[in-house]
């Protein structure tokens, strides 16, 4: 994947974090809006799944950028990207499972 695609997704996920994070905050802090959102648990799970994906992508890409700058050797650059991708996918899988259990889907 081109660096511009990765960074474009970095900016898109930043916007997604704000939107899905806001829904998450409202669901848990505003009794009226919270009740409406939680009335549809599948949609809420979808929101949380997107929130988690965006958050992990944004955070892990940030770590990747820092590591690439700290260890600029070109052969390390590829390894760092792959390692971060694998750690990111595993973390997402675990996180999604936790979410499903917490929201009563498993």
């Amino acid at each position: 994947m081109r660096e511009s695609t990765i960074m474009f997704l970095h900016y898109v996920t930043a916007i997604l974090i704000v939107i899905t994070g806001l829904i998450h905050l409202l669901a848990n802090n505003d009794p009226v809006i919270g009740a409406t959102i939680k009335a549809n648990p599948v949609l809420y799970l979808g929101n949380m799944a997107i929130f988690l994906a965006a958050l992990l992508y944004h955070a892990f890409n940030g770590v990747r950028v820092i590591l690439i700058e700290m260890v600029p050797d070109r052969c390390w650059t590829k390894w760092i990207s792959w390692a971060i991708l694998i750690v990111g996918i595993v973390t997402y899988a675990v996180g999604l499972q936790v979410l499903m259990v917490a929201l009563g889907f498993a």
Binding site: E3, S4, I68, E69, R74, T77
Partner: peptide
Amino acid sequence: RISVVDTEHGCWR
């Protein structure tokens, strides 16, 4: 030029 500037050590840093 994209293959040079649009890389891990290019303009996005």
